[in-house]
Amino acid sequence: MTAVLAPGSTKPHHKQALGVRFSGLGRSFGSSGDRRIVLRDVTVEVKPSEILAILGTSGCGKSTLLRAAAGLDIPDSGEVLIDGTPVTGIDERCAVAFQEPRLLPWHTLQANVAIGLPKSSSASAGKAKVLELLKLVGLDAFAKHRPREVSGGMAQRTSLARALARNPGVLLLDEPFGALDALTRIKMQDLLLDIHRAQPTTVLLVTHDVDEALQLADRILVLGRGDADEPGSTIAELVTVPGARPRDRNSADLGALRSSLLSLLGVTGH
């Protein structure tokens, strides 16, 4: 399971990590008569190579924010800038891993990972890269298996490998470990940190799991109502997580931060 990243064995095959800036982002859904504002005035700067966790209650617009960065959704107001240039559609510089693996059931894991390759890559280089990534996520022995022949955790690792195949300047993770069992989730979090250490790309991680955010993120952005009494979510809190990774899951600092984050999310008494 644990991918061993021997120094020098993996070429630095990612593009340079890119900074992301959300600037006055707003999004509402529904027709003009029945409009529901989901996001308002989200402005935040994410540094290259940073891991930013986006926390929030369900339905607060976490995924909408991520989808705006991927170019899968067009905001009503404001914009997303990656490396200084605005996102106008599906963006080559980003790669997404969703909550569900979303693999093509008729393809092998290898072929599914190859979907993520950038258009420009040659066939032989692409194949080598796919095999390397499958090895990285510990699935080289399952390259020829179909998604339904492997476990949920393995499918999710394949989905992660597919995102990495894109050489992303920004890696967008939409609750990628949310549907996994607790043990597999911890292993996946360690794998993500291994990958990030070897190839430090910028990561936006949407999650509803406070502990996951505390383990993985440099900073945590909490989406919520904020101070103003207006509809829609905005940045309720933006905190830097103390300590270098890997962090002790039981440290007192993190415990205090966990309590304050939970109360921001409306859970008190923990």
Binding site: I90, E92, A95, E100, R102, K119
Partner: peptide, 13 residues
């Protein structure tokens, strides 16, 4: 739709 969206996210159209 999820499959189609994932494929679109990886630049397929």
């Amino acid at each position: 739709r999820n499959l189609v969206e994932a494929a679109r996210a990886f630049g397929l159209n």
